[in-house]
């Protein structure tokens, strides 16, 4: 499934080789852990097991910031 996700202010296209994609798959595809990152689907924070469709508006939040 091809998905467009917003991450750290930029848009990325993810190609995840699965028919059913979950929020956790998106985090994994971006090499992120749910310990510090989460997915916002159509404006709502969703659990890792939540199924994602190609038409969903997806934003990934990585809470780690440095400096």
């Amino acid at each position: 499934m091809k998905l467009k996700v917003k991450y750290r202010g930029k848009f990325y296209e993810l190609d995840i080789n699965k028919e059913k994609v979950t929020a956790l798959d998106i985090l994994k595809a971006l090499n992120l852990s749910s310990e510090y990152a989460f997915v916002v689907k159509n404006g709502e924070v969703v659990p890792e097991e939540e199924l994602i469709n190609e038409t969903d508006d997806i934003k990934v939040v990585n809470a780690i910031s440095g400096g």
């Binding site: 750290r8 202010g9 510090y36 780690i64 910031s65 440095g66 400096g67």
Partner: peptide
């Protein structure tokens, strides 16, 4: 602000986190 300060790339604090 969702993106990182350009100077924080490679900061040790991020590695520790």
């Amino acid at each position: 602000i969702e993106y990182e300060c350009p100077f924080s790339q490679g900061a040790s604090s991020i590695r520790y986190k």
